[in-house]
Design a protein around this nucleic acid. Structure first.
Lengths: 220, 220
DNA sequence: AAAAGTATGTTGTTATAACAACAAATGGAG
DNA sequence: CTCCATTTGTTGTTATAACAACATACTTTT
């Protein structure tokens, strides 16, 4: 088992192989392999295990009634998915989880962590605390996305997102973790319209951008 | 102190006055009163305490660069706010928290709950577990909102939201917790445009609505 | 019961983004 | 280096939602 790797993840950060082994046993850990494009969790089902991506990566997707396909999130190695649904237990998934390449996932049955377990091993509360921090962080990310998609115009969304990035990275000169298509998806607008607006803003001298690198000139 | 009331909240559900007293002491609980329209937390500041609304109620708001005012959430008595920011600790608030009427808030310093406290009282892990459930539930609510605002058309958003409500309430005949303005805000569209679309959908025989009561006739 | 306030629906106009289709640039792979 | 695939930018057209302004309920107050 990859104790080395796990000790560097959010959930087992800094723990010894022995500790991790104990916790994994306690959580009924099971490793599973998925081929590219294979579905890990289907929308509509209920789940009781969280997943940790060991290798490869995984996408959280939604296909709506009209066949539109949209990507809500992408989970790299070391990160956790489905923790909300697994913890609440009875909520059907609104999304589908798919391996976007050959992927190994470690499943942890989180149920017994959340029941008031009388003989709760000393690691229980540590794990819950970390799981909570993961949840809080995801919360913040969701709030931010709502925030940046609240303005009605593309320009408004761009300014909201870009000025946040500038502030978060402490400089008006920064790079973003998205290409144009991904940024458009994140801001919930059309890619070509986004390109157009960025071009216009450059002509107006508000900013300069090339690929995922931005320089802001004016913020009000 | 309102042990009676607190024992009915998510965070202290079913706990005895004695237990609650212990926990409140441990969390440095402090009650504070706010007048109508008074600001509780300002956007930009960092906070270390979560709030529980004891009476009255509180709104999570955002005022953007252009003076648009929008309400992101409304917290009734017994419910918790700012748990994400207080737990992460160093994140500046993106929102402002305001009392919308005369309101009493109980603040709990959540920091010591999250540090690996050596002599952690037996209640610690219970509290964290509940706080985690609160967080998971908020997560789900945020995800749902993103979900319902992802379709580009007003009709798409309405169908997404309404069919979810129908499914959640187990009937095509249901009521929603919003008036028109609030629904428009939630779906991030104009109120009058929303009204218009609802009218059109009724004429097309897709649904019937009066105030916050809906009957769906067709779902595909 | 009148008055004032709030919520909802209606219409026409205007702004804006989606869409489609293509051109140009970029980046790997052989 | 050339070829193919991907990404990005451009343009014109069309659909759609925002906006403004008003009419019609429906509530609440006095």
């Amino acid at each position: 088992m990859d104790y080395e790797f796990l000790s560097k993840t959010m959930l087992f950060s800094g723990d010894s192989p022995d500790e991790i082994k104990t916790m994994l046993d306690c959580l009924g850990a099971a490793k599973k392999h998925y081929a590219k494009s294979e579905v890990i969790y289907h929308a509509g089902e209920t789940v009781s295990s969280i997943g940790i991506v060991l290798s490869g990566s995984v996408q959280i997707e939604n296909d709506d009634l009209w066949g539109n396909h949209s990507v809500l999130d992408s989970i790299p190695p070391g990160f956790v998915f489905a923790e909300t649904y697994a913890s609440l237990g009875d909520e059907p998934l609104m999304v589908t989880v798919t391996a976007i390449e050959d992927t190994e996932v470690l499943f942890l049955n989180v149920k017994r962590l959340l029941k008031t377990c009388p003989n709760s091993c000393s690691h229980h509360s540590k794990l819950i605390r970390r799981l909570f921090m993961v949840s809080a962080q995801k919360n913040l990310n969701l709030s931010r996305r709502i925030f940046h998609t609240t303005p009605k115009s593309i320009r408004g969304r761009l300014l909201s997102y870009l000025s946040f990035q500038a502030s978060a990275q402490g400089s008006l000169d920064f790079t973003i973790p998205f290409n144009r298509q991904q940024l458009a998806d994140y801001l919930n607008v059309e890619r070509s319209a986004l390109s157009g607006e960025l071009g216009k803003m450059q002509r107006e001298g508000l900013l300069k951008t090339e690929k995922n690198h931005f320089i802001l000139y004016e913020i009000r």
